[in-house]
Design a protein around this nucleic acid. Structure first.
Lengths: 102, 102
DNA sequence: CAAACATCTGAATATATGTTCATATATCGA
DNA sequence: TCGATATATGAACATATATTCAGATGTTTG
């Protein structure tokens, strides 16, 4: 029996996969994530550590939050971001390892 | 003993990690990869399957090749591309799974 | 060699994206 | 309430990126 072999990811799914990878496709976001996979941190601390403005961090966090890659916890005036999905942590670290190993 | 705790990925490494993820941050490249992780395919077949021009495919493959995410095999006039690094295949599929599961 | 075919390349263009700046919102302490 | 601090937002701008088009390169066959 002939067997339909067209294993191309459909446009819609592919767009979402691309969207996920795009979240980690910027140097600043990678640095932010490299901190957050170790534990939560607030916006101004992230800005200081990564070396960009708090506004820029805030913009990045919005995108990451919309994709549910990070979640936020408000404590007083500060907002702490963290990564709680283990799959996301693993995905990110796998990308980092691929670069650092060689 | 105080312990230096500044686990931010350095700018240079972060840029390379971002570059890696950026390779999968486009819908067309995701669809191309979704085929290549199953086996090799030449340019015109990829163009037909993904639904973009052969020129566009060629441009994409250049970028993927430069990052050593795919390798090329020439057979007559045709060029067959494939993914031979298992870590890359795993990284890509992990991204796909994250989207398809939920 | 000539013609057909597959792939590549570079310029051009349209769109996407990251950052900055100014300002808004929110929370706390005096 | 007022001022200070933390974060968010939106517009503007500069850069990056994907695709198309025209043409170049390379390969096979007549």
């Amino acid at each position: 029996m002939p067997h339909k072999n067209k294993p191309v990811l459909d446009e819609h799914s592919a767009a979402h996969v691309a969207e996920l990878f795009r979240a980690f496709s910027d140097t600043s976001r990678v640095r932010i994530m490299s901190v957050l996979v170790k534990g939560e941190m607030n916006v101004s601390a992230l800005a200081a550590v990564v070396g960009i403005s708090e506004s820029a961090v805030s913009h990045h966090m919005r995108g990451l939050r919309q994709l549910r890659l990070v979640s936020a916890r408000k404590e007083g005036k500060e907002v702490y971001y963290r990564v709680d999905d283990p799959h996301i942590i693993e995905l990110f670290l796998q990308g980092v390892e691929h670069i650092l190993i060689e």
